[in-house]
Design a protein around this nucleic acid. Sequence first.
DNA 1: CGTATGGTTGACCCCGCTCAATTGGTGTGG
DNA 2: CCACACCAATTGAGCGGGGTCAACCATACG
Lengths: 249, 249
Amino acid sequence: MRTEGRARKRLPVTDDGDPLTFCSTCAFSSACLAEGFDKSQLSELHVLVLHVGPFARGEHIFREGDPFNSIAAVRAGTVKTYVVDSRGREQVQGFFLPGEVIGLNAIHGARYPANAIALDTVTLCRFSFPQMSLLATRMPGLQQHLFRLLSHDIGKASLLSGDFTADERMAAFIIAFSRRYEARGYSGSHFNLTMARTDIANYLRLASETVSRVLRRFQDEGLLRIERREVQLLDRIRLEQLASAVLRH
Amino acid sequence: MRTEGRARKRLPVTDDGDPLTFCSTCAFSSACLAEGFDKSQLSELHVLVLHVGPFARGEHIFREGDPFNSIAAVRAGTVKTYVVDSRGREQVQGFFLPGEVIGLNAIHGARYPANAIALDTVTLCRFSFPQMSLLATRMPGLQQHLFRLLSHDIGKASLLSGDFTADERMAAFIIAFSRRYEARGYSGSHFNLTMARTDIANYLRLASETVSRVLRRFQDEGLLRIERREVQLLDRIRLEQLASAVLRH
DNA sequence: CGTATGGTTGACCCCGCTCAATTGGTGTGG
DNA sequence: CCACACCAATTGAGCGGGGTCAACCATACG
């Protein structure tokens, strides 16, 4: 019923649907499709895709310190990355939805700098990074695409570093998910948060009690409806307004 | 008397010292030297270097929204990048010392997402990014180097996003500068902060009054001596301890 | 020497954290 | 199908770190 797409029709091997088509939600689809590469190049990219999973909820995809050799695009489910700080508390670094890429911050250092864990049933498309780099030297479009993905994540990482109020952070969180779901073809006004309140709190650097209270108030003020993990946006304008402090349009 | 190195011996043109040697502090020196490329490749990289500046204190190097076409390595001086938030307050994103690279977060989006301003007299080595990408398809070592630089900045950007105390932030700031100066061959125990207190505060997401108070206390407790912008580390062990919460070793 | 800008210090207060108690939802075994 | 246990989420009470506001001080510059 959820993000599985057209997997499962096939055996879990390196391919996906028709051999000349990447899955439409994949972060790399535009790297080839949008730029009109010929069929031989497409299949070259396909050759180094390894379809892995499913990972069950709570299973680790990689752990901090593991040697780095591949990046992966989320195909189905949600991935959370986190580290454990010196006080032993979990610091959530990010959530990754279908089509988004994990492992980019491991290139430098040759080891994963964080843990990645499945929040629900997760399947991935794994790419050997050395092989992909090699291919990128022959496919300028792919190289550009990798540069852009990396560059994008620099900006994303600094979003939450500002000094924002709990309301602004919470609104930005909701709006960002809404946009990301929309970009992948799901509803942006009614969706399911796949993570616990404590995960949201650790990500936003708030106490989970504060997350509860703010969501409660948002609901009382008619900005949204939230029951358990089901969110429905009711006043997107107002939420965007609050979020704009963080997201900057 | 400061970070000028061996510029100024030459006209401000595309070259630097001996035509087959990059300046030793440059972030790209290792891209060729350390990996044993031959002389023809070295000169290819040299061809696309444009030595620009000097910029005077307060001059902008680029502004938010400017079209992106080049990245630049700082050659001398200090660069500050910042944006202005919705409340009209300056949010400092980073400081760049000689040898460090600015503009990497502009690749995605094709426009600079922040302003860059010289904090003192700044000179740069500017590289056309399209040309550099093209060269990188023929120099796998250069491509790897770019990937690593980008990847590194993802991690750097998320450092300050944790919920740390003012003391931890301040200590991490001092230690990080100490290490970066050391890595470039300057003293790591006695150096000059080139930015104002308000810049430090905006970067650490603290009030400038708090920066003053914390530095005062650090001095009273014998961790360092600071007069105006001159810093001298007195108890590096203790500072590293405080900083470790942020820097994670 | 006067003026401006940046830095320091003090007094007060508020947002969000902590601690603690309660509720509710989910899964498990009787 | 219900009873219990367990964990996530909620709600309340109190407090403290760091922000704000304001006054004062010091160094740089004309």
